[in-house]
């Protein structure tokens, strides 16, 4: 069965992990808030696992989901 993803971002080689000096790749991550989980695909460092959350995502979708959950 295919995994459900709420959001997908493909870094397309534009992002590089400065610690591991490798490009970030599309990887599996999960947002957790107030005991709720949301599987997503975000730019992840294939070596150290650093997950990058872009500004637009943090201030857009993430913020609106946070607010919605805060009203639960």
């Amino acid at each position: 069965m295919q995994d459900k993803n709420y959001y997908t971002i493909d870094p397309q080689g534009k992002l590089k992990c400065m610690k591991c000096q490798v490009p970030l790749v599309k990887g599996k991550a999960k947002f957790m808030y107030l005991d709720n989980g949301f599987p997503v695909e975000l730019p992840v460092c294939p070596v150290c696992g650093f997950v990058y959350v872009p500004e637009e995502l943090a201030l857009g979708k993430v913020l609106s989901v946070e607010k919605a959950l805060e009203d639960k």
Partner: peptide
């Protein structure tokens, strides 16, 4: 999150943002 460039004696901050959700990796 902080967006920055390095300067000769530190950092120049271009932007900062935050979120309350915690992000973890998964298999």
């Amino acid at each position: 999150w902080v967006k920055y460039t390095e300067t000769k004696d530190g950092y120049l901050v271009h932007s900062a943002y935050s979120h309350r959700m915690n992000i973890i990796t998964r298999q």
